[in-house]
Design a protein around this nucleic acid. Sequence first.
DNA 1: ATTGTTAATGCAAATCATTTGCATTAATGT
DNA 2: ACATTAATGCAAATGATTTGCATTAACAAT
Lengths: 139, 139
Amino acid sequence: MEKATKTIEKILEDNNLKNTKGHFNVLSVLIKEKHPLSVENVGKKISIKINTTTLYRILDKLSKKGIIYQTTFLDGKTYYEYQKHHHHHITCTKCGIKNKVDFCVSKEIEKINIKKAGFVEINDHVLEFFGVCKKCQKK
Amino acid sequence: MEKATKTIEKILEDNNLKNTKGHFNVLSVLIKEKHPLSVENVGKKISIKINTTTLYRILDKLSKKGIIYQTTFLDGKTYYEYQKHHHHHITCTKCGIKNKVDFCVSKEIEKINIKKAGFVEINDHVLEFFGVCKKCQKK
DNA sequence: ATTGTTAATGCAAATCATTTGCATTAATGT
DNA sequence: ACATTAATGCAAATGATTTGCATTAACAAT
């Protein structure tokens, strides 16, 4: 058994999730992938036949357990990725690919602006960039 | 005829839009309102009886003409507002109200990060804060 | 003021992403 | 091997939004 396989099984076990084809393969797809994927994207990349409802349920469960992360992008769809920490993305407006971006709004700036806007508590923020990726520019 | 009425009629005329009850009242609601409103929100605030499809069409048309602005928030719904310039919001996670925020990511920072992420062209960015508004904190 | 052209509107049905209900199946502890 | 309960599949429901099509209302030309 390879290392990746072991890791996935360990993750599932640690989170009280059964080691099913669904759980295993969804997680496998997301671990390999470095971009956020929509539910449909995951469905296309997965190597087993899986019902869409089940896919929705697995992704939802994994994100609720904190194993994967969820974002809603401007297309109104939900995207998932295997990334431990808060971060942002840049989306290609031609092909839709989403890369990670290092920049983040500091807690300081968050605090100042939230106060200015008449809010009291800070929870979170979402930041998304849009541009054209190298591949698409070449076309 | 009041000033506000004149202004709306002028806007419609300048954009080759007929001065219908629909156009007039939708624009009137958005001009008065300082927060972004969902289609449903506009429907509730409008003083005439209007079909939902028509409402969608009017809002879409106004935003395509550049008269109003459109954003998709994390609830996956489309919001509209009458605001001329690029800006961001803070959304109350309790009641959903959306206020304007002054902070913005500079062109410099945008450029640096887009290059780092392997992208070539910069188009735009979206930034949304989440917190609790004063009203909701008091409750 | 009347008419013609075209945009604007309303209604029903379609679409798209996502969710729910319910019956069946499979994974894991005993 | 068996029981328990989670996981899955399928059909139908939901909610936001869009489309097709027929009707109506604005506005420009007469």
